[in-house]
Design a protein around this nucleic acid. Structure first.
Lengths: 359, 359
DNA sequence: TTGAAAGCGCTACCAG
DNA sequence: CTGGTAGCGCTTTCAA
């Protein structure tokens, strides 16, 4: 026993690893008092609190949040799962999400599934870290996994995807309404042969954008909408699909892409074929990524309100509450807005629509 | 049917916090045994291990890594501090770093300093989480903070910056050598009035690129290098600096920017002024961000070997070792390579240099 | 190989 | 308001 305390004292002296116990000893108070000085709920005299803080600073003491977590059952960590960091849409999403998380006094544990790994595979690992909440971006989990999270009272929100019936929260922009705005706009500006180029076939974002677009065109008595499969949401997919489409007969006069990055690939493909944008063909994207505003592309698109979406997503996790999902799963759809730039033009009065703006 | 209800029961129980104790009780063994089944160093019979794992799965038990951390003093978390997620260089860096961290069985705790907050401000918070190591991207800490980390045996590596004399590891690309390659290339292709447009004035990346460029030009008997201050590494800074520079007399025939994003701003600015790239002026960037390869820009640049840099950064943290910095701070500089595209041309034989390539 | 017991550093409850 | 005391869930001696 004696040997043990000698060792401990030596370690303390070395400056490594100062504990509340150490601070208590130098002050001749109890360890509980040190704890109270760093808690905002516990009652402690201002005088004592000041004394403790001062001593703590001198010794370099910082409460160990890991030890705290063990007893409070809260780690103050939110897991964010994000499969694709490189597509320009996601850095903005991550930035806004992390800001929201941090502004509530929480930290972000970031999980990037390796290629070929799906979210369910990483969930067990993630849950071991006892995170207080989980944000899934452009991904979903199985209903079995959703049940496990519910049983643990760990709220989960899906960002930019939703699965009807799945017992997790969801926040996305209103993709159907956004796509309808595009249809309205293209028809109003005199386009007669619109096409939709899809991204990842089964993603809800893709389906909603396509369905909203096609169904609104039908309502407007425009029954022929060419469709081309891109396969995924990449630049390469947009580029390749555009080349295929434009080489075939019956050229469309407007292309609506499932996302901006694809649309930018589409613009480059059209230009390579000697087809001018917007004189020969109008191009519309979805997202309003930073690149869409560059003068070389100046892409007409639907702006996703990422900041509000991120705020809504983190709000619904209800981090201030002790734990759990209070009110059953919520689905929130936030409307986007049409940003007209010069990748589209009015074919009734052949003047460029919108104005070029740099970034 | 029967199996189904068992599963359901297990999940329900999972809600009430399955601990090693619970698994031990159902198996009639000690809690220590459960612990040993999930440890790879402890000795346990294969038979027992299997039995424990099976029971654990049935009950939905997962070891609580927070509790484990308290005693092992290792959280298996690496903090990554990244101030700017939006500039296209950083998503790639983050992606590679996280891959490296995860591939070693660690997780990433991501810190994004809010505007106006510097890294020293967030370090105390970060250290409370008892992370095993810290990666700072494009940022440094005070020497006082470096000493605190050293005292705690928490290794720190600075990615893409270095501070001579600071007791932390550093990994960056060899910016001086890269800039020299640019100078060599521009002189070899007949440029006579080069200019350098700087980014953030005091960043080591900026200083090394400028100094490497200017000093190499001098060696090559080209003593006049125009310099223009951009102020920061943004598109806007590159755009504005280019406008200022090109409106003044004595037009340069080549612009070397402190980074790609600035160079892209520069291309847009030049085009707006009716100056053709590369016919009237050659433009070179630094980084090789994904956008640099787009046909609209097709930017000649120095490619930073981000994957190797990320690997080197995480390697130097020596995560496999119990703790601490074994061998004093290391500084590694990894060479980049010149990628010639069509934003530059050979002014001796006026034909475009390099070939356009999409992304 | 296994079980019992002692903590890791902290919070939370109970008296005083 | 403060000190004592009991754990949080786990790893790790030390015996058996």
């Amino acid at each position: 026993m004696a040997r043990r305390s000698i060792t401990k004292a030596a370690v303390t002296k070395a400056g490594t690893h100062v504990t509340a116990e150490d601070v208590a000893r130098t002050l001749g108070v109890s360890q509980s008092t040190i704890s109270r000085a760093f808690s905002m709920t516990a009652s402690i005299s201002d005088e004592m609190k000041l004394k403790v803080i001062k001593a703590a600073n001198k010794l370099g003491y910082q409460p160990n949040v890991i030890a705290r977590s063990l007893i409070t059952r809260r780690t103050n960590m939110v897991a964010i799962v994000m499969a694709n960091l490189v597509d320009p849409f996601y850095p903005v999403v991550l930035d806004e999400l992390v800001q929201q998380v941090q502004s509530r006094g929480f930290q972000t544990l970031l999980f990037v599934p390796s290629p070929g790994q799906d979210v369910d595979d990483i969930m067990p690992n993630l849950l071991q870290y006892q995170v207080d909440a989980i944000v899934l971006t452009s991904a979903t989990i199985s209903s079995a996994m959703a049940r496990i999270c519910a049983a643990r009272d760990t709220p989960v929100v899906s960002f930019n995807r939703y699965v009807p019936g799945l017992q997790i929260h969801a926040v996305s922009s209103d993709n159907i309404a956004g796509a309808r705005q595009v249809a309205d706009f293209l028809v109003a500006t005199g386009h007669e042969r619109p096409a939709f180029i899809s991204g990842e076939r089964d993603a809800t974002t893709n389906r909603d954008r396509r369905n909203g677009f096609v169904s609104r065109l039908k309502q407007l008595k425009m029954n022929s909408c060419i469709q081309e499969e891109g396969g995924d949401f990449s630049y390469e997919a947009g580029y390749a699909a555009t080349k295929r489409l434009l080489r075939r007969a019956g050229h469309p006069d407007a292309l609506f892409f499932a996302c901006d990055v694809m649309a930018i690939g589409g613009i480059d493909a059209a230009r390579e074929l000697g087809i001018s944008v917007p004189e020969d063909i109008s191009i519309v994207g979805y997202d309003d990524v930073p690149m869409a505003a560059l003068p070389s592309y100046s892409l007409t698109t639907i702006r996703q309100p990422i900041r509000e979406m991120a705020k809504a997503a983190v709000d619904v996790l209800d981090l201030a509450e002790p734990r759990g999902m209070k009110s059953g799963p919520t689905t929130r759809m936030i409307p986007g807005s049409l940003i007209t730039r010069s990748s589209t033009m009015n074919r009734r009065a052949p003047v460029r629509v919108g104005k070029a703006s740099r970034r």
